[in-house]
């Protein structure tokens, strides 16, 4: 009988294992090539061209970076929407992070009926689709009841400098919508809360730490890695959402005679770049906090 420790056998074993692994993953690699990589490169090529789709085929005229300069310097709408998107993301992500963490902390307590609340807070994940949200927003159902229309709030908004007015108005009209994007995040936080070793809390309590101190010194530091995951998940969900203003604008330009596929592709890449910048910024912001604690 061969001993498994012999190098020849182990080498062959390793090769065979690798081949078997590739066999399982192969379908994904092929899919990635055909449905992600090639279309991505193709979209980039479109972004450098003027693309006209006719009944017979696709005509391309090379225009170098003209689509990009048009989006950034000539088209007033795109840059405005991009800035709006960045501000709205910067407003929403911290709210979603803090809100879902608080709800997760509540739901992590040993309370009767917490299952009902868990069901309620996860419900929006199941029903959130672009057209549904659009209907609800247009009927004013996503603003805080009685708050957004009250004269005090309107007065207050009018007093704000224009830089703050946009985000504040967004907050007022879409407050519930922002909270609705917290469903999955609450569950991610809950799962990590349950992973924290209870004996650490017990040790801290014996040393005289209050619940408040335990939260700041034990719970919060334990969640720092989760914060990064939740922030990235949130940013991507918000950015890919089909009701996102930039996404809608790019979509509308795709079929527009003035814009066309080339222009839409260029905007897609600019948008992708903005998304990456936001992701990196969020990562750095949360990562630096990890190091401090």
């Amino acid at each position: 009988m061969k001993s498994p420790g012999r190098p020849r056998f182990s080498l062959r074993h390793r090769t065979r294992q690798a081949l078997q692994g590739y066999a399982f993953v192969a379908i994904w690699i092929v899919g990635f090539a055909f449905f992600t990589l090639v279309p991505l490169v193709q979209t980039f090529r479109y972004s450098l061209n003027q693309v006209i789709v006719s009944a017979t085929g696709v005509e391309e005229t090379f225009v170098a970076w003209q689509n990009y300069t048009q989006a950034l310097f000539t088209d007033p709408t795109f840059v405005e929407l991009l800035i709006e998107y960045a501000i709205e993301t910067a407003v929403s992500v911290p709210i979603i992070l803090i809100f879902s963490m608080i709800i997760a902390l509540f739901l992590n307590l040993k309370l009767p009926f917490k299952g009902i609340f868990r069901t309620v807070f996860f419900l929006p994940v199941v029903i959130t689709s672009g057209p549904v949200i659009r209907e609800l927003v247009s009927q004013g159902a996503t603003s805080l009841p009685q708050v957004a229309q009250s004269p005090v709030v309107l007065e207050f908004l009018a007093q704000l400098p224009p830089v703050l007015r946009g985000p504040a108005e967004y907050l007022m009209t879409s407050f519930i919508l922002i909270l609705w994007f917290s469903g999955v995040q609450i569950l991610i936080y809950l799962a990590s809360l349950q992973k924290i070793d209870r004996s650490i809390y017990e040790a801290a309590a014996i040393d005289g730490a209050s619940a408040w101190q335990s939260f700041w010194k034990i719970t919060l530091p334990s969640l720092s890695a989760t914060n990064v995951v939740v922030a990235i998940y949130t940013i991507i969900t918000l950015s890919h959402f089909s009701e996102n203003k930039v996404v809608r604008y790019i979509y509308s330009q795709t079929y527009d005679i003035k814009g066309g596929i080339g222009y839409a592709s260029a905007m897609s890449f600019l948008y992708f770049g903005a998304l990456l910048i936001i992701l990196v910024a969020a990562y750095l912001a949360l990562q630096s906090r990890v190091r401090k604690t």
Binding site: F32, P39, T43, V247, A264, S268, Y271, F272
Partner: peptide, 14 residues
Amino acid sequence: ATFIIPPQNTIIPQ
């Protein structure tokens, strides 16, 4: 990466 890349960056050629 497939999770991060926005759909509009790959959808038109498809």
